[in-house]
Design a binder for these strands. Structure first.
Lengths: 212, 212, 212, 212
DNA sequence: TATGAATGAGACTTCATTCAT
DNA sequence: GATGAATGAAGTCTCATTCAT
């Protein structure tokens, strides 16, 4: 009598994934503020107090979404861009994996970037993730430079990497908004913009402002 | 002491500017949703009903901010990048003006982009403005191409322009977050990324994905 | 310089009528609470402070409307139902005038009755007007009774009169809602209901509840 | 003292009735617009959000009141005026039930009619209910006519029924305003006005306007 | 006289969050 | 473990009403 198993009692890990799925869906559809815990709970097929018990506050819930989606994305990219490939190959594989991920999880992307960029509480989280990306890209550039016996100040590398990441994010936004667009083609376009410029830099060509 | 100037009963145009100033400030500090009309009104030194009477709903107020800041920015850029300059000069002047504007109105930039990107009601407004920028950049590229007797499909040009604009926005975000950074230096960096890559494209160099 | 005549300076009486016209129109269209002083002032082509200066508070303004419309209606009825006519003639003329008035001033009727009946502040005003109508009707009945040498307690007469007035109001409501309906026909119908029953009463026929 | 009954956490159905009770009370005391959701909630001994959660918007809440009171009244009338009685008996029983109901639920009556008559959103609801009453009355008249081998156009019957209903409503208003008045006596009076006139009509007597 | 400018007050409504069962 | 019931707090918006010009 005391141990009658209830069919509803799923293990905690499963329930949490259901909730995160629902949360990502609702957050991406409505935005952080407009999303209501009611809708998330209902969409997850669970009662609100459960959501609070498992994943905490609305803000914490959003951060949990961010974490999960970020981890998935970084995993996809890292898996594709093996460190032992030549730099241009790594960049291409990384970009293709990135746009492939965005194309496959447009919801997640919307949550990750568009929502988070706006409000302070999540800026930190987002900045951390972007920093990791920038670091990876800067590492590729550095790797390529050293292979040619050249060297550039770390700051400069970072800014260039930042711009490349920004351009990628922008195209990813564009991709998320165009359901019919092909991720691979988008990746190729980005590669054209990114690699041609980067290759020049790698070869020591630089542009300097006119004395005016 | 007897001639204290009368601070109240200002004409409508003046009050509207005060309100917009306050709104830009509060929106950029708190984000659209977290910003309260109370705080905006108080910051403008006026009562809430006046804000509603002059500038309408919270949403309309935000759009009014967007419009004003956008117009200012486009004016600054258009004034700097005269159409009769050679393309690289135009791009450089335009970028310098753009980053200069962002550096000078970091509040406005935050409102313009970061907030608006998130929520649907403003996506349209923002897309329109970005479209104008993209168009200008694509025009520059096209101009340069024709000068070299070459031609590229409009779609391709637009995607490249889109990526460049995205990279600029990203650096602008970075600039807005780093109060000590110099706009002109940031513009130079962006120019390096943008122009070197673009110049390659202009010369007919392209990158193609490996057959894998 | 001090007596330059302004074309806008209409005499007070005219302005007041304009305001009342506008007020009746807006009150009847929106109802008392939903009507806004702004709309009334704008509809009257005058500024709000003027409305307050001339006709006072919103509540006072509504009562002013009530008064004017009431007076007009009573005048129309009294003018038609001359006291020296035989009772059935008076009733008929009165009813015809009443429905004619309602048909011609559907706005005014809506203000008068539908709005006022609901809220306490105006119940008094309305009751007073209805009391005058009831009194007139009861007077007719009494007159007819005496002509036949009969007499009935005043209370009874009043209740009957009250019911007749109520039935008339009801048909008037119906008339106000049916723009295509003809006032005269409606009056005839009411006369059928009213006079046939009243005539019976006048003849001493009464109905008594069964002992059950 | 240790077994103080728990007044809180009542089941939904109970709370809804409490809320409706409070709403009817407040609406009838203040009128729709002047009534505040705060007061209703407080009167129901519950917080405002519960009212919204269970019964929705203020407007929806009012309509819910209308429905409940209407249903109760129609039930009372239908239960009293059995269709197998002779017409005059049905009319009498129906009227007695009607005035009995109004006398017992003066609050409800005020909500039902006086408030609803004024504003558009409820006109439909009210019209529907009145239409059912009119239909019932017209049915009685038709029944009586056929019993005497006569027939009258449906439209005419309806207008007569409408007038009778209007007269009843008017007397009901009067009853609601006179706490000391006896419902049964009022019903008798109404019966006198209604039945005597109707009986004449049933017998084929009609009144025609003079050629003037 | 006439009005644009201004506001205090208050209404409805929605949420994130927590008890008590 | 799970949930229906419950609420404090806040936010947007509107309106009648009054100054000061």
């Amino acid at each position: 009598m005391s141990s009658t198993p209830s069919f509803k009692r799923l293990p905690r890990a499963v329930r949490e994934q259901q909730m995160l799925d629902a949360a990502v869906k609702v957050f991406s559809r409505r935005g952080f503020h407009a999303a209501s815990m009611d809708e998330i709970a209902e969409d997850a097929g669970i009662s609100k107090p459960m959501v609070y018990a498992y994943l905490g506050t609305k803000e914490e819930l959003f951060i949990a979404c961010l974490h999960r989606e970020t981890a998935r994305m970084m995993l996809a990219i890292a898996g594709a861009a093996a460190p032992d490939l030549p730099p241009d190959q790594r960049l291409w594989r990384g970009l293709r994996a990135f746009f492939g991920f965005v194309g496959a999880h447009r919801d997640g992307w919307a949550v990750l970037y568009r929502q988070a960029r706006g409000s302070q509480p999540f800026a930190t989280e987002l900045a951390a993730m972007r920093a990791r990306l920038v670091e990876v890209v800067a590492g590729m550039l550095d790797h390529a430079l050293r292979a040619r016996g050249r060297e550039v100040a770390a700051t400069e590398l970072e800014v260039v990497a930042y711009a490349l990441v920004g351009a990628s994010e922008s195209l990813a936004d564009w991709l998320a908004d165009h359901p019919e667009a092909e991720p691979e083609k988008t990746a190729t376009r980005m590669m054209n913009v990114a690699w041609l410029g980067a290759a020049q830099l790698l070869d020591g060509v630089t542009w300097r402002p006119p004395t005016d």
